[in-house]
């Protein structure tokens, strides 16, 4: 009897070893996580070498690296500009630390600031060659995020955030995934470029999204829970809004409202020139 228990326990240990031994490296490889050897400092140095040798002709050099945390107050932000990157991560410190590194003496400027009283994090980047690391302490909640970008490609992933968010982009590409966002004032304003937006688990608390696009493309993948009401108010001067709601394509030419239950999601899109495509999926 005891022998059987021992056999089963050891058998379970072997199975656990196989599962852990397969899942752990798979996860680390999939997330490209170098571990102890790839600390933020090492990574910054490593990417610095890549950036300095990167072509600066167009947008085709994109650095992608996400520094993530598990805390509920985590802000995850990864912005990849034309020839550089902005990373916002958290460090076990209790003071705000904003490190700005510049590799070239470009005339274009950049600025990052954190208002401790309002909790707003403002990032302005107009340079094509900047590296910026913003560290936010564990006990600090970022209440707002403003991104002002003139050129380049921004990839922004934010989880668990309260407060207003605004992205103002003159020219470039914004790809953003927002999870568990509680915000009553989210603004995406773009004069030229492409916005790809993915909202996950957010719409219940996200009461309103305003998106203004002068010229460009808006693509959003918004996962809404069942019985969610969708209201889209497009103002289109030149272009068309394509909406896919739970797999069904809908083309909107004027103000329309879709009531699919009790929860509510309002999405306002104004396009001067171009089109917006919104995918709503379970």
């Amino acid at each position: 009897m005891i022998e059987d228990v021992v056999y089963r326990a050891i058998g379970a240990l072997v199975i656990a070893g196989l599962i852990i031994g397969i899942i752990t490296p798979l996860y680390l490889i999939a997330n490209n996580m170098p571990g102890n050897n790839g600390s933020l400092v090492d990574l910054t140095q490593m990417l610095s070498g890549l950036v300095s040798s990167a072509p600066r002709m167009n947008y085709n050099f994109i650095l992608e690296k996400e520094i993530s945390t598990n805390s509920t107050n985590a802000l995850r932000l990864d912005i990849n500009l034309l020839d550089g990157y902005i990373e916002v991560s958290r460090a076990p410190v209790h003071t705000i630390v904003i490190d700005i590194y510049s590799t070239t003496s470009t005339a274009n400027g950049y600025k990052a600031s954190f208002n401790e009283q309002s909790g707003a994090l403002d990032i302005m980047a107009r340079s094509s060659t900047i590296k910026l690391v913003v560290r936010i302490p564990d006990n600090m909640i970022v209440k707002g995020l403003n991104l002002n970008m003139s050129n380049g490609i921004a990839k922004i992933n934010i989880t668990e955030m309260k407060g207003p968010i605004s992205f103002i982009i003159d020219n470039g590409i914004l790809e953003s995934e927002l999870k568990n966002i509680v915000s009553n004032n989210t603004l995406i304003k773009m004069s030229n470029g492409v916005v790809k937006l993915s909202l996950r688990y957010s719409p219940i608390n996200l009461s309103e999204i305003k998106i203004q696009i002068n010229d460009g493309v808006f693509k959003a993948s918004i996962r809404v829970p069942k019985n969610t009401m969708l209201k889209i108010t497009p103002t289109i001067l030149n272009g068309v809004v394509h909406v896919s709601l739970n797999g069904k394509n809908i083309t909107i030419y004027e103000d329309q409202e879709y009531d699919n239950g009790s929860s509510r999601l309002d999405c306002e899109i104004m396009i001067l020139n171009g089109y917006a495509k919104i995918d709503f999926a379970r």
């Binding site: 656990a16 070893g17 196989l18 599962i19 031994g21 397969i22 680390l28 102890n36």
Partner: peptide, 18 residues
């Protein structure tokens, strides 16, 4: 068969340097 030991200890590789 004993390779499961590597599996059980595989998370430590993340914390060790190269």
């Amino acid at each position: 068969l004993p390779v499961f030991i590597i599996g059980l200890l595989s998370p430590i590789f993340y914390y060790l340097d190269i």
